[in-house]
């Protein structure tokens, strides 16, 4: 069981989009640029970063909801990118996704019970009566009434809809769930309910997670390992809480310091946070982060830093990290 459940190597997804009016030109959005990571069995792996950093594209590329350009994805020893339609279908039973807004992924005219039973019937796993019983069990498992299946999506509140999204992902007994900002649209009191539910399910079903979020607090609570993304690349990776206590990349430091904490005695000087995230269409030369980094050198402006393994669990892509001393620039 020491082999990772999921191994992603040099995954690259670029989008070609037309921009401009009246003479549109085709530009390339470098949404995902050669990212690599592994998810162990039973582990919750956090992908964090700001909008446009490629974290959602990473989740979708793994499921091939968007087709990656290059790289490899290995799930339990099987090459996902080479899988044909039939194999992919089998793989999708084991790999599921939860979206931020479950309402948009539910058919408004279909009763919940029918919608949840559909995958069981499509995959030919069980008959109608059996599927209906399984749906009732699922609803109870995610904290909804046993008979909620006769209702329509609009009859549920935001928190209940996310429970439905989770039930839908669980229907086929997956091994890995990609959760894309599953609690971002929810109020604090509902958010904690959903996080507790996900954690309980992780234990009872022995699930692994790729947990995509912009909220460092949520990731710190839910995940054991985290990777920080910036403009399509992973800039730092490491175990929680070490990556919070001793971040190595200046961007991880910035993200951590910008995250507000509910403690007025710990007010921070926000003034040190500079600049905005540039566009992935035309990323800055060298290290993409250099225009916002106060430690940037000539080298940072010219050459993208190589990925350095710090130890078995940690890695960073920063010219200023010194492997001999294990030191990063201090803020």
């Amino acid at each position: 069981m020491s082999d990772p459940l999921l191994r992603v190597r040099d995954l690259r997804t670029h989008f070609r989009v037309k921009r401009g009016f009246p003479n549109p030109e085709t530009v390339t959005v470098r949404a995902l640029d050669e990212i690599s990571f592994e998810v162990k069995r039973g582990e919750a792996f956090g992908l964090v970063g700001e909008s446009g950093c490629g974290k959602s594209t990473a989740g979708r590329s793994i499921l091939r909801l968007v087709e990656p350009d290059s790289g490899s994805i290995e799930f339990d020893g099987e090459d996902v990118l080479r899988a044909d339609k039939a194999r992919m279908r089998a793989l999708r039973r084991r790999l599921q996704i939860i979206f931020q807004d479950p309402y948009s992924s539910l058919n408004p005219r279909m009763r919940i019970g029918t919608a949840l039973a559909e995958p069981l019937l499509v995959h030919g796993i069980m008959g109608k009566a059996e599927a209906a019983e399984r749906v009732r069990d699922l609803l109870v498992e995610v904290g909804l009434p046993r008979d909620a299946g006769i209702r329509f999506p609009h009859e549920f509140s935001g928190g209940q809809r996310q429970r439905l999204g989770i039930a839908r992902a669980l229907t086929l007994n997956p091994e890995l769930i990609i959760a894309d900002e599953p609690v971002s649209a929810l109020d604090v009191s509902i958010q904690s309910q959903i996080l507790m539910l996900l954690r309980n399910l992780q234990e009872t079903h022995d699930l692994s997670f790729i947990f995509i979020s912009h909220d460092l607090g949520v990731v710190r609570y839910f995940c054991q390992v985290m990777a920080v993304m910036y403009l399509g690349r992973i800039v730092e990776k490491g175990p929680i809480p070490r990556i919070f206590d001793e971040p190595l990349h200046p961007y991880t430091v910035m993200l951590r310091d910008a995250s507000p904490v509910p403690d007025p005695t710990a007010r921070k000087a926000f003034e040190r946070i500079e600049g905005e995230v540039p566009s992935a269409i035309n990323p800055p030369s060298g290290c993409h982060f250099h225009p916002r980094c106060k430690h940037a050198t000539e080298l940072c402006r010219k050459v993208y830093p190589k990925w350095m393994e710090v130890d078995a669990q940690r890695g960073v892509a920063c010219h200023l990290y010194d492997p001999a001393s294990g030191m990063s620039p201090k803020p």
Partner: peptide, 14 residues
């Protein structure tokens, strides 16, 4: 109920 980024939260209150 808030998971915090500045410290470990063993048990989240709901």
């Amino acid at each position: 109920s808030i998971p915090r980024s500045d410290r470990d939260t063993a048990e989240l209150h709901t």
